Amino acid sequence: MTRRELEQLVDLGEGISVEFKRRAPRPERIAKEAVALANTNGGRIVLGVNDDGTIMGVEHTSEQEFLLRQAVNAHSRPVVEYQTERIVVEPRCDVLVVTIPESSTKPHVVVPDEEARDDEGQTYVRVEASSVEASPETIQELRNQEDHAGVTFEFGETESLLMRYLDDYGRISVSQLAQLADIPPERASQTLLRLTEADLLHLHPDEDGDYFTLNY
């Protein structure tokens, strides 16, 4: 990446696939950002850029790379893969661009220490320019993403109510479907996820509560 390409990236601002950091934050925080990007669409963490887009660079870039590697190895499970690239902004002062591909082994979690098992910890995804804790529905959707082909289901009364509601209002949450169809939240969640797996619905993680929309 050239200095000009870095400037163009920074001009776009933070978003679902870009996170600015002045320097590597505490280990669990940087692992959280890496996990969220890997669980969503992939993206970049740019170390040496303020939240307002000011390119400051970091000194001792090798130390920043070491801290990043230690944090990701100790606090992400499965360990998130990434690549780094240095862009010189001043003598002995670089911006470190950390590129994280969308993972094929979702969901990744943030664990408190490197001895934790794979099924412990918190799962995060990107929502707009933030990394937020994933809901149970989002976690299940991450697990199901490789197995969507050939999903079948019975289209019953609950599904008919759901489709009519979406035609009228455009979006629905688990609690709204549970109230609409007078069913337990667990069954509402299963119904929405089953239709999402069949590519009829799209799940939208959101800080104020996940919701579902028609996928066409």
Score class of each variant (00 low, 15 high):
residue 33 E to S: 13
residue 34 A to Q: 00
residue 34 A to W: 01
residue 35 V to R: 01
residue 36 A to W: 05
residue 36 A to Y: 06
residue 37 L to G: 00
residue 38 A to V: 00
residue 39 N to Y: 06
residue 39 N to T: 02
residue 40 T to L: 04
residue 40 T to R: 02
residue 40 T to G: 01
residue 41 N to D: 11
residue 41 N to H: 10
residue 41 N to R: 07
residue 41 N to Q: 07
residue 41 N to V: 03
residue 41 N to W: 07
residue 42 G to E: 03
residue 43 G to I: 07
residue 43 G to K: 09
residue 43 G to F: 11
residue 44 R to G: 00
residue 44 R to F: 05
residue 44 R to Y: 09
residue 45 I to G: 08
residue 45 I to W: 12
residue 45 I to T: 10
residue 46 V to D: 13
residue 46 V to A: 10
residue 46 V to T: 10
residue 46 V to G: 09
residue 47 L to Q: 03
residue 47 L to S: 01
residue 47 L to Y: 14
residue 47 L to C: 07
residue 49 V to R: 10
residue 49 V to P: 06
residue 50 N to Y: 09
residue 50 N to Q: 15
residue 51 D to K: 08
residue 51 D to I: 03
residue 52 D to W: 08
residue 52 D to T: 07
residue 53 G to M: 13
residue 53 G to S: 10
residue 54 T to H: 12
residue 55 I to W: 10
residue 55 I to T: 09
residue 55 I to H: 09
residue 55 I to C: 07
residue 55 I to A: 08
residue 56 M to K: 14
residue 56 M to G: 05
residue 57 G to W: 09
residue 58 V to M: 11
residue 58 V to E: 13
residue 58 V to D: 13
residue 59 E to D: 14
residue 62 S to I: 04
residue 64 Q to F: 00
residue 64 Q to K: 06
residue 64 Q to R: 07
residue 65 E to M: 14
residue 66 F to A: 06
residue 67 L to W: 15
residue 67 L to S: 05
residue 68 L to C: 07
residue 68 L to K: 06
residue 68 L to F: 11
residue 68 L to H: 09
residue 69 R to H: 14
residue 69 R to I: 00
residue 70 Q to R: 14
residue 70 Q to T: 12
residue 70 Q to H: 09
residue 70 Q to K: 13
residue 71 A to K: 08
residue 71 A to V: 10
residue 71 A to Y: 11
residue 71 A to D: 12
residue 72 V to N: 03
residue 72 V to D: 04
residue 72 V to F: 05
residue 72 V to I: 15
residue 72 V to M: 04
residue 72 V to C: 03
residue 73 N to Y: 08
residue 73 N to E: 15
residue 77 R to I: 05
residue 77 R to A: 07
residue 78 P to R: 03
residue 78 P to E: 06
residue 78 P to S: 05
residue 78 P to C: 04
residue 79 V to S: 05
residue 79 V to M: 13
residue 80 V to A: 03
residue 80 V to R: 03
residue 80 V to F: 08
residue 80 V to I: 10
residue 81 E to L: 05
residue 81 E to W: 00
residue 81 E to S: 11
residue 81 E to V: 04
residue 82 Y to N: 03
residue 82 Y to C: 02
residue 82 Y to P: 01
residue 82 Y to G: 02
residue 84 T to C: 14
residue 85 E to F: 07
residue 86 R to V: 01
residue 86 R to I: 01
residue 88 V to Y: 00
residue 88 V to P: 01
residue 88 V to L: 14
residue 90 E to I: 00
residue 91 P to S: 06
residue 91 P to C: 00
residue 91 P to R: 10
residue 91 P to L: 05
residue 92 R to T: 11
residue 92 R to W: 08
residue 93 C to K: 15
residue 93 C to N: 15
residue 94 D to E: 15
residue 94 D to L: 02
residue 95 V to K: 08
residue 95 V to I: 13
residue 95 V to D: 13
residue 95 V to S: 09
residue 96 L to W: 11
residue 96 L to N: 08
residue 96 L to K: 07
residue 97 V to K: 08
residue 98 V to L: 11
residue 98 V to N: 03
residue 98 V to I: 15
residue 99 T to Y: 02
residue 99 T to L: 01
residue 99 T to G: 01
residue 101 P to V: 02
residue 102 E to S: 14
residue 102 E to D: 01
residue 102 E to H: 01
residue 103 S to D: 06
residue 103 S to I: 02
residue 104 S to L: 10
residue 104 S to N: 04
residue 105 T to A: 09
